[in-house]
Simulated assay, not measured.
Amino acid sequence: MRAPSRFKGNSYTEYLVGLVVLVLALMAPISDGDSAIELLVDAIKQEHAAYMHAISLPL
């Protein structure tokens, strides 16, 4: 059974609205003015620095 033509494209709009809400939620300030994205990037940088230090140690 085919969907009526007037309903075509509704799922695209719903996904777009959901994506916009998700991005805005990740960009909203959480603590001390930092967003979730900034906190995630900082955590990845710290873990990468620790990994690079550990890998550079001689065996």
Results as ranks from 00 to 15, higher is better:
Thr13Asp: 14
Gly9Trp: 08
Leu22Asn: 08
Gly33Cys: 06
Leu22Ile: 10
Ala54Tyr: 07
Ser11Ala: 12
Ala50Leu: 04
Glu14Leu: 05
His53Tyr: 13
Ile37Met: 04
Ala43Gly: 02
Leu57Ala: 14
Ile30Arg: 04
Val20Met: 05
Ile44Phe: 14
His53Ser: 10
Asp34Pro: 00
Leu16Ser: 13
Arg2Asn: 07
Val23Cys: 12
Leu19Tyr: 14
Glu38Gln: 15
Tyr15Phe: 13
Tyr12Gln: 07
Lys8Asp: 12
Tyr15Asp: 12
Leu40Val: 04
Ile44Asn: 14
Glu38His: 11
Val21His: 08
Ser31Gln: 09
His53Trp: 12
Arg2Lys: 08
Ala25Asn: 13
Glu14Arg: 06
Asp34Leu: 10
Phe7Leu: 13
Pro4Ala: 11
Ala49Tyr: 01
Ala54Gln: 12
Glu47Val: 01
Arg2Asp: 09
His48Leu: 06
Pro29Arg: 09
Met1Asp: 05
Leu59Thr: 00
Leu40Ala: 09
Met27Cys: 08
Ile44Gly: 10
Val41Cys: 08
Tyr15Lys: 14
Val41Met: 12
Ile55Val: 15
His53Phe: 12
Ile30Asp: 03
Val41Trp: 09
Val21Asp: 09
Leu40Asn: 08
Val41Glu: 13
Asp42Val: 01
Leu57Lys: 15
Lys8Gly: 05
Met52Phe: 08
Ser31Tyr: 14
Gln46Val: 01
Leu24Pro: 00
Val21Leu: 08
Ser31Cys: 04
Val41His: 11
Leu19Trp: 11
Val21Ile: 03
Ser11Gln: 05
Val41Phe: 10
Tyr15Val: 04
Glu38Cys: 08
Gly33Ser: 06
Val20Asn: 02
Met27Ala: 08
Gln46Ser: 04
Pro29Tyr: 13
Ser31Ala: 10
Met27His: 09
Tyr51Ala: 09
Val20Gly: 01
Val20Pro: 00
Val23Met: 14
Asp42Ser: 04
Ile55Arg: 15
Gly33Met: 07
Ala25Ser: 14
Leu39Phe: 13
Phe7Arg: 12
Phe7Thr: 10
Ala43Pro: 00
Val20Arg: 02
Asp32Trp: 06
Met52Glu: 15
Leu22Trp: 09
Ser5Pro: 15
Leu24Ala: 03
Ala25Glu: 14
Leu40Tyr: 06
Leu24Met: 07
Val23His: 11
Ile30His: 02
Lys45Phe: 03
Ala50Gln: 11
Tyr51Asn: 08
Leu22Tyr: 10
Met1Phe: 04
Ala54Lys: 10
Ser31Arg: 10
Ser31Trp: 14
Ile44Arg: 15
Ser56Arg: 07
Ala50Gly: 04
Asp32Val: 03
Tyr12Gly: 00
Pro29Trp: 10
Val20Leu: 07
Ile55Asn: 15
Pro4Trp: 02
Ala43Gln: 06
Leu16Tyr: 11
Ala43Tyr: 07
Ser56Thr: 04
